[in-house]
Design a protein around this nucleic acid. Structure first.
Lengths: 133, 133
DNA sequence: CAAACATATAAATGTATGTTTATATGTTAT
DNA sequence: ATAACATATAAACATACATTTATATGTTTG
């Protein structure tokens, strides 16, 4: 079989099949993704996928903050904030520190802010590009 | 009132209150986040928050791919793939192109790959840091 | 110890979402 | 037009999840 003009032939149990051309125009180099990585990434992304949880995460990105501080800053209910903090703890995105009756939470990895930045600009660009048409 | 040693005094409707010290140790500079940004970011993050959907997105990150191609590559059902592609379209993360009976999908913004890269390394680091203790 | 505060947890609930099964729409070739 | 293929859509379902209300746990102060 010739390799000159490659094409994928998908075997089907019945009758004929259509021929589909194959091109590729690669992007920059990126980390080769293993199966476990998809789990991890989607799990972290899920932590960022709720608006309130994201607000909370960014609220503790500038340094330690108590639960009450977060509650007051964001105007969310205390149990809701606690619940989301528990999730953020589960995903290891926050560092926890106890001091007296107060419990302080803090963003554990600043690179999350880079992610948020990129997503913000991408979203902005996608939306404005959409309006162009 | 003195500014020397700042402290937050949270007013409560009843009795006394506790005093909580205020420190801050800022990170690098980042985009100032407006209210609308949280919506957009969390929305995009939600698109990355499902393992199969993420697989699909990365599957079309190396160039146009037909639905059937994705189905075969990932071993997912065709309706499931179509459903996730619809979501990815809704979030503007894929570009669509029709050619005959085939419909080709492609990642619309390569910066999403940067996000995935960062999340991968962050996740790896967080997990390995966790094992240290 | 009792009262007041800080935070966590539990129960309950409505809603969103991922997946499957089945069917419809649309396209190409005979 | 009919058959075969590619993809989309709809229905149905189970599960996950965000939120509220209510209560428990733990800490400090008087």
């Amino acid at each position: 079989m010739e390799m000159a003009n490659r094409s994928e032939n998908v075997k089907r149990h019945d009758g004929e099949m259509r021929t589909e051309p194959v091109l590729s125009e690669p992007h920059e180099d990126h980390i080769p993704l293993l199966d476990e990585h998809f789990q991890m990434v989607s799990f972290l992304a899920k932590s960022l996928s709720d608006e309130n949880r994201l607000r909370i995460l960014l609220c503790v990105s500038s340094g330690k903050k108590s639960v009450g501080g977060i509650v007051e800053t964001l105007g969310l209910s205390q149990p809701l904030v606690s619940h989301h903090l528990k999730e953020l703890k589960r995903s290891l995105l926050v560092r926890i520190e106890r001091s007296g009756p107060f419990i302080y939470y803090e963003l554990s990895d600043p690179r999350i802010l880079d992610v948020v930045d990129i997503l913000t600009t991408v979203a902005t660009d996608l939306i404005s590009a959409r309006k162009t048409f």
